[in-house]
Write a protein that binds this DNA or RNA. Structure first.
Lengths: 240, 240
DNA sequence: TAATTATCTAACCGTTTGGTTAGTTAGGGG
DNA sequence: CCCCTAACTAACCAAACGGTTAGATAATTA
């Protein structure tokens, strides 16, 4: 089932160190820590902070329960660490995006597509965020690391918007933070609520449905960003 | 603190029935059931299914724990009932919307504003949905009542879109279900993630921030719905 | 290779928790 | 007025759970 991580070498009676791919034979604190974090990430995402059993994490990480306490102190601290790690992962992925040399509309399209694809590929991240929000965001608030991890996407959006506006490709008066939140929203919701959406709307969880949704999301944001046509009355808030 | 519901009359030694506002003095199954459901709704929303303690619900409802089991069977069944009730509530509120006689753009604006306001006023509903999705939507899936409660907003959106397209106020080729999901998304996200958003972006939870967000949300959707200007190259997916 | 340190574990513990039991009290119908 | 049903409760229980302890085993160092 989930035999991604190996606990000890185990293949036969190999007692000595590394046979090939850097697998440690018997004891490896770093690898064990990593196994625990991976296991915890999955369990917390699936069951939530309260629903997760430390024993389940230990079993999945194939280590002793006490080892978890040894490395991470307690359940909440482990949860915080898992959250931090997940934030770091998405921020790092975001930073890989190189949009500076792309034409503004294409750049924006890629940014939105990236956001959609990331959450599609990492639904556990969304579950963690949801759970964290249910608990009032205390772990994020207390984690300097996570709090300082402001998304680089906001700055990218700002740059793309400016360039696009200069070229007459985008409308004016768009707040980058608001737009960032909107992009995150439409990407996030579909993944976060896949279960209830599929139950209520009968939407199957196929890749085709996902692709359609992805296209729609891009269309909505780019459609919004279209410049005001001269003389066209924008159906937004009348100024008076 | 939370003295909204009264358990028994309690004012002095009044032993007989209803003094005024329909409050039952001593025993009232319907009122007790309602108190339990209200208490459960709040507790589940704040702590989640796993995080909620039946004792906490009993305390908040000011009744004995066994009574909860007597009326609702077990924790999960109670959670399902709470979920159903919350779905019924939002669907009922949605049905109150009368947009048939409004001008399309105004109608759409009101529909979006309503959605935003509803989730702003009922963050517990969102917490429940989040928790339900973490558990794979099993309760909604098993509840015929909730599953059949498809949102009336989809049909309303469809009608408004058609009228608006006929009048040249809206673009063509918009899928009502996709649009419904997008509207729900941008309304939902900001409320669901208020804690982490405020932690990371330093957004205070003031009504001013909320109002700005509301305005932006409406602007995005209406901006997207603007008709294609003649000859204007839509920055959406090139057909070839 | 002996001493030391770090990794890791089996077994245990006190508390919390969902759920039950056995019964008490109010109220309505005959 | 009495009895029967339904509302309600105090006390209890076994299982589950987060966390601890005491120690065993592997790696490292002197």
């Amino acid at each position: 089932m989930e035999n991604t991580d190996r606990p000890t070498a185990g293949a036969g009676a190999a007692k000595k160190n590394g046979s090939g791919t850097g697998q440690k034979a018997t004891r490896d604190a770093a690898a064990t820590r990593a196994r625990i974090l991976n296991a915890a990430s999955k369990e917390f995402a699936k069951k939530g902070l309260k629903g997760t059993r430390i024993d389940a994490i230990a079993k999945r990480a194939r280590c002793n329960k006490a080892l978890i306490y040894h490395y991470f102190g307690n359940k909440e601290a482990l949860f915080s660490t898992v959250l931090e790690r997940n934030y770091e992962a998405i921020r790092s992925a975001e930073r890989q995006l190189d949009l500076a040399h792309r034409e503004p509309v294409a750049a924006m399209r890629e940014l939105i597509g990236f956001s959609f694809d990331y959450v599609s590929a990492h639904p556990e991240f969304i579950s963690l965020i949801n759970d964290e929000n249910m608990h009032g965001g205390v772990h994020v608030a207390h984690s300097v690391k996570a709090r300082d991890l402001n998304s680089p996407l906001v700055a990218m959006i700002e740059t793309i918007l400016e360039r696009g506006q200069g070229e007459g490709k985008f409308r004016s008066g768009v707040d980058p933070v608001q737009l960032y939140i909107s992009i995150a929203s439409i990407c996030y919701f579909f993944i976060a609520n896949r279960s209830t959406l599929s139950a209520i709307f009968g939407l199957p969880k196929t890749s085709e449905v996902l692709a359609q949704r992805r296209e729609h999301v891009i269309e909505v944001i780019l459609g919004y960003l279209r410049p005001e046509a001269d003389g066209q009355d924008l159906p937004s808030m009348p100024k008076a």
